[in-house]
């Protein structure tokens, strides 16, 4: 049972990690917490589900999901955060909470209050590794997550836009003085963070077969905890934080009590923060 629970935990951990990357990148560059990250995840799922239902094409559905998530992310940056830059950090925080409520109400208005199934059931092939059953879908989730994390790392270290993001995160004034377009770096951050959350949303829309206006709430909160757990602002930290959180809650539910499954995630968070207040990979400021 242990390996099975480990696999279960890693799969949900991958999703937390993808969303946590969005939180941590935006925090790293802007110093704000984007509480609407869970709603970006939700819009990614809805984009894919509605387009798949209309066209039956997986490629179009993925594009639509990515497009919807990125659009929401960019609109958030432009209208919820950019006008408030330079204000007290509490102000954009409130703005983010407001945006989150607005987005989930909008989704309820357009898509109705009910859960929607994914219009296609994917094959249920199962593989057995160390007595754990892993479905094709679980492998896909882990594979895509690993690929995206590698892609993000390559983007940030190799590409001009990625390096610009890193420079702005270190010191936005110095970056501006050396000719980096800071606004473009902000937009690039929101775009890549939103794309990751959007992919997470699409994966979950298929895996759990249920897309609803409130689906982003709990994963958003857990991913936020994952980002803090890993050390907010740190990219590897977000990944490790997500995985630790996913595994902790599954093992907690397995060996202690499933009544408190959500609580174990947060107990892990508190324990790590007591021992290491800056998070697992956090930099000392």
């Amino acid at each position: 049972m242990f390996f099975q629970q480990l696999v279960n935990g890693l799969v949900s951990g991958c999703v937390y990690a993808l969303i946590a990357l969005g939180y941590t990148m935006i925090f790293g560059i802007l110093g704000i917490v984007n509480f609407a990250q869970g709603e970006i995840y939700m819009f990614g799922a809805f984009g894919a589900v509605t387009v798949y239902a209309a066209t039956g094409s997986l490629a179009l559905a993925i594009l639509a999901g990515l497009g919807a998530a990125c659009l929401v992310g960019v609109l958030l940056e432009r209208f919820a955060f950019r006008p408030l830059r330079g204000t007290h950090p509490l102000v954009p925080l409130i703005s983010a909470i407001g945006a989150s409520i607005l987005l989930s109400s909008l989704a309820r208005f357009f898509f109705g209050p009910e859960d929607r199934p994914f219009p296609h059931e994917f094959s249920a092939a199962t593989y057995t590794v160390f007595s754990a059953h892993i479905t094709g879908m679980q492998l896909t989730i882990m594979g895509i997550s690993a690929a995206l994390m590698t892609a993000l790392w390559l983007f940030l270290t190799m590409s001009r836009h990625g390096k610009a993001i890193q420079a702005v995160a270190m010191d936005s004034d110095a970056a501006r003085l050396s000719g980096i377009n800071v606004n473009r770096a902000y937009v690039a951050t929101f775009l890549s963070g939103s794309a990751l959350s959007g992919v997470a949303g699409m994966l979950m829309a298929v895996y759990y077969n249920a897309t609803s206006p409130t689906m982003g709430l709990l994963p958003g909160l857990k991913a936020f905890s994952a980002a803090i757990l890993g050390g907010v602002g740190s990219i590897p930290g977000a990944i490790i934080g997500g995985l630790v959180l996913g595994v902790a809650e599954n093992l907690g539910a397995a060996y202690l009590s499933s009544n408190f499954k959500d609580a174990f995630a947060f107990i892990a968070l508190v324990l790590v923060l007591i021992i290491r207040p800056r998070g697992i990979m956090g930099q000392r400021k």
């Binding site: 279960n8 949900s12 759990y208 689906m215 709990l218 599954n250 539910a253 397995a254 499954k261 959500d262």
Partner: peptide
Amino acid sequence: GDRDFSAQITK
């Protein structure tokens, strides 16, 4: 609000 029941089902 849970959508992941794998821990419980495994048990």
